[in-house]
Design a protein around this nucleic acid. Structure first.
Length: 286
DNA sequence: CCTAGAACCTGCGAGC
DNA sequence: TGCTCGCAGGTTCTAG
């Protein structure tokens, strides 16, 4: 599933293959893919026509294409199975092709949004003063953003009456972290996913943020990591590399630190993977 | 206001 | 063979 590193790889691909091109025509093949565009598919396609795309931007798992001649952007979220592909016109339509964008130039390629599970989509929005699509103003900066505020994040953890993995997945506190990298960072930090955030010390928060950044940078260094064949980067090549993860998906396999069999626990309609020895269940406070 | 949990969606693989 | 069911999970909505 695309988390921050995968989305950043897509952003870079768009910068290379789509930026500075002018939209000739857009085609919506599945209305659910533009459901965040409240005015509907026809409005979406009409508004895109004739606009030139600027440099693609990203915050967390969201990315957007600013329109150079308007204070608006095309916002994209890949959801869990979304792909943005740059394909030759003559390439056969993908089974789950949802949106096609053609450009007014001689290049032989078009932009395609392909999404099996249709959790993702494209939409058009006004920008805020910061150049951010207005509907994602509530999304926090991500940990690779130079302006991410470590101290503010720590104070937010202290205020919360929640647990650490919930906090890591809360996109209004810190964006870009999904289920996979949350488990990886918690394993590295030797923290159980249900540890209460209220008791975090500043050194503990700092160490955890360091692991979050390390995990993401390691993934970015090899072009985004995962193992799900659904995910393909903007050029249609697999963006997921088969780097072995240390925690996620390793139920029953030995912990890479201590050899104890890793465990999987149902959690929030998904799974948490952890080492029962390195990542002790916190004491229940009464 | 805050937190927890369900719902949304489709394909795949396991089990019967 | 063909069916059901669990699982994958980011975001948003609802319940408490």
């Amino acid at each position: 599933m695309p988390e921050l590193p995968e989305v950043e790889v897509v952003r870079r691909g768009l910068e290379r293959w789509v930026a500075q091109r002018t939209v000739a025509e857009a085609e919506v093949l599945h209305p659910r893919a533009v459901r965040r565009h409240v005015a509907g598919a026809d409005d979406f396609t009409h508004r895109l026509k004739g606009h030139r795309v600027g440099v693609p931007m990203r915050r967390g798992k969201y990315l957007w294409l600013p329109l150079e001649d308007a204070n608006q952007s095309i916002l994209a979220h890949l959801g869990m199975s979304g792909q943005l592909l740059v394909q030759p016109h003559e390439a056969a339509d993908e089974k789950h092709l949802r949106i096609r964008v053609r450009f007014a130039d001689d290049l032989d390629t078009e932009l395609r949004f392909v999404d099996q599970r249709t959790f993702g989509g494209l939409s058009l929005h006004d920008n805020t003063e910061d150049g951010l699509p207005d509907v994602i103003a509530h999304i926090a900066r991500d940990p690779l953003d130079p302006l991410f505020d470590d101290e503010a994040f720590h104070q937010a953890l202290r205020r919360k009456r929640s647990t650490i993995k919930r906090a890591l997945l809360d996109q209004s506190l810190i964006s870009g972290v999904g289920n996979i990298y949350a488990d990886e960072a918690l394993w590295r930090a030797r923290l159980h996913y249900e540890r209460p955030t209220a008791g975090f010390t500043r050194p503990r928060t700092t160490e955890l943020l360091g692991h979050v950044r390390d995990v993401m940078n390691a993934a970015l260094a090899v072009g985004g990591t995962s193992f799900d064949s659904l995910y393909v980067n903007v050029n249609g090549e697999s963006g997921y590399f088969d780097r072995s993860l240390d925690a996620y998906g390793r139920e029953g396999l030995p912990c890479k630190r201590c050899g104890t069999p890793m465990r999987r626990r149902p959690w929030m309609n998904r799974s948490s993977y952890f080492c029962p020895k390195c990542q002790r269940v916190p004491r229940v406070s009464s």
